[in-house]
Structure formats: C-alpha cells, structure tokens
Nucleic acid binder design. Structure first.
Length: 543
DNA sequence: ATAGGGTTAG
C-alpha cells in the first residue's frame, strides 16, 4: 500500500476533484492545495485534465495572484477543448506574460476550428512579437495552411531548415503533406530523406503522397518495404487504389488486411459507390455489420449516397432509422446526405422535415434542398428557399446557382432565370461556368427563345461542351428550328445527335428524302441512337 | 500547458 505522498500525480486529479465536487461546503480548494501540497496551478491543470472547465475557471478567477503562465496556458487549452474559442482568445489577449506555448496553443485552436486566415494572422503577430516558432508551431501551421496557403509551404520549409527542425517527425510529415498538395514529388522525397529517424507516420505520409500523385507502383514498393505496417498504412493503400480508379486491386488488398476497422470498411464501400456498383457496396456493408463493426457518420453518409444514386428509398429509410437510433442525427453532413437521399428517392416532404429541423445549415445543405425542389419541379419553392438562404446571410456559391437556374428551367421562368444569371456575378461574385450557361441555353431553348440561346452560345467566354450543344439541340428539336440545327452541322459539329435531330425535324416537315439522307449519314459514321428509357412514379393514397 | 497519417454531403 503506497503512502499518500507516493501516489502518482496523475491519480490525484480524479481523487481531489471528486472530493471537491462531493463536499464543496466542507473542503475548499485552498485546503485541498494545502493537504496535497498542490499549487493553484497544479489544481487547475488537474481540473482541465478531468474536463472540468467550470471548476478550473472558478479557481482561476478567484486566485488571479497565484496564477502563472502555465495556469493561463492550461486555461486556454481547457477552453479550446470545450470549443470555447472566444473565451480562449480573451484570456490570451489579457494574459500578462505569453510564452511560446501560449502562441502554439492559440494556433492549434484556430487550426481546430479550421480558420486558416486567423491562423495566418496570429502566426504573423507571433513573429512580430519576437516569439521564435518551434517544432510545435511549424507542424500546426503547415497542417492548418493546407488548401488555403499552400504556396507558403516552401517558404516555411526554408525557415524550418534554418532552425534545424527538419528532422522532427511531426514537422516532417506536415511538410510532406504540404508538398503532396503542391504536387511536388521531388520535394516530398527530399523531406522524407531529411527525416533521420523515421516512424510509421513518416512512412504513411510517403504512401499517401505517392498515391495522391498517382505513383501507384512506387506506393506499392514503399508499402512492401516499410519496416512496419499499421491499419492506417493498409487503409491508405486501399484508398489509394480507389482514388486511382483501380477498384479490383483495392479489393484485393482490402481482403488481405490483417484487421479492418470502420475507416477501412467505409473507404472500400465508398469505392464501390463511386463506381456506381451499388450491389457490391451494400453487400460489403452487410459483411461489415456481420463482422461486428459499427458504422459511423462517414459510413452512413456514404451509404445514403448509394441510396440516392439508385433510388433505394426503402434502404434509405431504414438507414435513417439507424441514424436516429445511433444519435448521429444532428451531424450536419449526415443531415445533408439524408436530404439528398430523400429528394432523389422522390420524397421531398421528408427532405423538408429534416431540413427544417436542422439547427445549423451550411451552403451545401441549402444547395441540396434547392436542388431537390428543382428536381421535383417546384420552381417557385426553389426560388423562395433561395431567397430565405440569402436573407439568412448565407452566401450562395456556383452550385447554388446551378440549382436555382435549373429550377427556372423546370418552371419555364425565363425572366427569373435571367435575373439570377446576371446577379450571381454582380451581387455574389460567382463567375458563370459551363454548367450555368448550359442551364441558360436549356431555359431559352425550352421556352422557344432559340435566338437568345444561340446568342448566348456565341457570347460564351469558353468553348461550349457537349452539354451546351445538347441543350441547344434539344431546344431546337422541341421547336423544330431547322436552320439552327443545320447551322450546327455546317459548323463542323458531327455528333450523331445532330443528325438524329435533323432526321426528326425533316420528318416532321414531311421532307422524307432529307430525313433518309441524314439517316444514311448517321449509319455511315457508325452512329446509333441511344435507347430511350423512363420510369414512372406512382403515388398511392395521395393526390 | 502546445504538434502528425486513412473514411462523409450539394
């Protein structure tokens, strides 16, 4: 039996914080400190360790004089762990003495909430304040800069070389991820070589790098010569093959995995969903359940994607029940997947139920519901949801506008479509892409304003693609605009669909000789008409 | 008291 003063520090935390919690009237923090010969700072640290931020904060606020920099830093850490970035920031601003840990902790906070601009600002302030960045600083800011400030990676690299921190495994793997983003293979390898004592994460970073850059063979060689492998190495390899569109090799390695977890199962299922091989995706999901692996929100959202892809309403609905049971239902991404699944399976009502119950919505959630309305032909509702979206301060992006414009197409709302097409750049700085032009051409074409459609195609700042021509052609076909279609033929576009359209128009006008001439041309070029297909939806019990 | 790998949505 150890004496009380031989009990390790770590075990005390639980003990004395319990003591304080259970009998706050009998014993004060001050007495606890006395009994256990703890400083206020020690006690604060123990509270933070236990996740008891409120007790820590109370003690901290009541004893300002006995709080040193370590206590301040612990408080900042505690607030960040509880997602209270605002409070953390206030403490950071108020603290009398900041050391490198204070700065690093704040940087990690901005990294956690994914605010690269604040992260960048704080890093500049840190340098201005004369605090020298260390290995913690570099690994944090590099990972936080990815996708936003990728260009800074080489410059940070040079600072790192200057400070002699290049051999640190954390710094090194962050740099490797940075160079992977920059698609710079040779720098990736340089950084790898510079890390003198490599650990498994270092090797895994190389594996990710090779796979992301498409060097499949090098990735496999790396995998085969790695000193040790963990489940992450295996999953990286499997996912790498999926990303490089080699699903069979992915499955081969997947089957060879010594053990699998949620992540590896989800990655493999996702691979099949991307290939639109929904049968295999669902079979694999069943095997996953049989192997006693619980799905998480990643898995569910992947499967909902599968349901949306092939209109499996029943399975989607069952998954929804599972999600409700699992308590994952307030997950933002998952709700958005559910909305998408329901709209694509024809149940816009359920989609709205979920959408309206969401506490926080982002651009993607709004886009799914607007897109859902569009798909259901509810043009006016799509526009009113769009109005609500902008009024709530959410900024529309290019996808929002694709959905808004396609709603206008379905509803034949030419005026509204034109309005939004123009205001997207003027009000929100969203430049029109190919898809937006396609929608507008489609809109004009269906409304019979083929002249406007043609003018738009001519004015487009880039070369129209098949989609744009297809929309124009469809519009012409709908209104039998022989001249325009024939014009397309003269322009040298020889898609067989143009000839097919000409056949249709000639037939309608009764010029059979022309129609036959066109048909022969199609056959001559080996063109064949696509088989037509459609599905009819019956609704029972509702009008 | 501070740092790193693999899976999710429109």
């Amino acid at each position: 039996m150890p004496k009380w003063n031989q009990i390790p520090r770590a075990s005390w935390g639980v003990f004395h914080s319990q003591l304080l919690l259970q009998s706050p009237k009998l014993i004060s923090p001050a007495s606890v400190c006395l009994i256990f010969t703890l400083s206020t700072t020690d006690l604060i640290q123990d509270y933070i360790h236990d996740g008891n931020i409120n007790a820590a904060r109370k003690l901290f606020d009541e004893n300002p004089a006995s709080c040193n920099t370590v206590a301040w830093n612990s408080m900042i850490t505690g607030h960040i762990r509880h997602n209270q970035m605002q409070s953390a920031h206030e403490l950071f601003d108020k603290m009398p003495m900041r050391d490198v840990v204070s700065w690093n902790t704040m940087l990690s906070g901005f990294n956690k909430i994914k605010d690269p601009h604040k992260l960048h600002q704080l890093f500049l302030q840190m340098n201005k304040a004369g605090e020298r960045p260390n290995q913690f600083t570099f690994s944090t800011i590099i990972s936080g800069f990815l996708n936003t400030f990728d260009v800074l990676v080489p410059q940070l690299h040079s600072l790192i070389l200057h400070s002699g921190l290049h051999s640190n495994v954390f710094v090194g793997s962050a740099l490797m991820r940075g160079y992977t983003h920059l698609m710079d293979r040779s720098s990736l390898c340089r950084v790898f070589d510079d890390i003198l004592t490599k650990d498994i994460s270092t090797w895994n970073a190389l594996l990710v790098g090779y796979m992301d850059l498409g060097f499949i063979a090098d990735a496999q060689i790396t995998f085969d010569m790695m000193p040790e492998l963990n489940i992450i190495s295996w999953t990286t390899l499997v996912d790498g093959y999926i990303k490089n569109r080699n699903i069979n090799q992915a499955r081969h390695m997947f089957d060879k995995m010594p053990q699998k977890n949620v992540v590896s199962w989800t990655a493999m299922i996702k691979g099949y969903v991307q290939q639109e091989n929904y049968t295999n995706a669902i079979q694999l999901f069943i095997s996953m359940l049989n192997s006693n692996t619980s799905p998480n929100h990643f898995t569910f959202s992947t499967l909902l994607d599968a349901c949306a892809g092939c209109s499996m309403f029943l399975l989607g609905n069952q998954l929804h029940s599972c999600i409700l049971k699992s308590g994952l239902c307030q997950e933002l991404v998952l709700s958005t997947s559910l909305i998408d699944m329901y709209t694509k399976c024809g149940d816009i009502k359920s989609a709205f139920t979920i959408f309206d119950s969401m506490k926080t919505k982002n651009t993607v959630s709004w886009n799914s519901i607007i897109g859902g309305c569009a798909r259901h032909g509810l043009a006016h509702q799509a526009l009113s949801e769009f109005k609500k979206m902008t009024e709530s301060g959410m900024k529309p992006d290019h996808v929002t506008y694709i959905n808004v414009l396609s709603a206008c197409v379905h509803g034949g709302l030419v005026k509204e479509g034109e309005h939004h097409f123009h205001s997207m750049v003027e009000r929100y700085g969203v430049e029109a892409e190919m898809k937006h032009y396609t929608c507008m051409v489609d809109l004009y074409g269906k409304a019979g304003e083929v002249d406007k459609a043609v003018r738009l195609v001519k004015e487009m700042p880039f070369e129209p693609d098949v989609g744009v021509w297809g929309a124009l052609l469809a519009g012409c076909g709908l209104h039998s605009c022989y001249e325009v279609v024939n014009g397309l033929q003269i322009l040298g576009r020889d898609y067989s669909s143009i000839y097919n359209m000409l056949i249709k128009i000639h037939s309608e006008k009764g010029s059979w000789s022309h129609a036959i001439e066109m048909r022969d041309k199609v056959i001559e070029r080996g063109g064949r008409k696509q088989k037509a297909a459609s599905w009819v939806e019956f609704s029972i019990g509702e009008s």
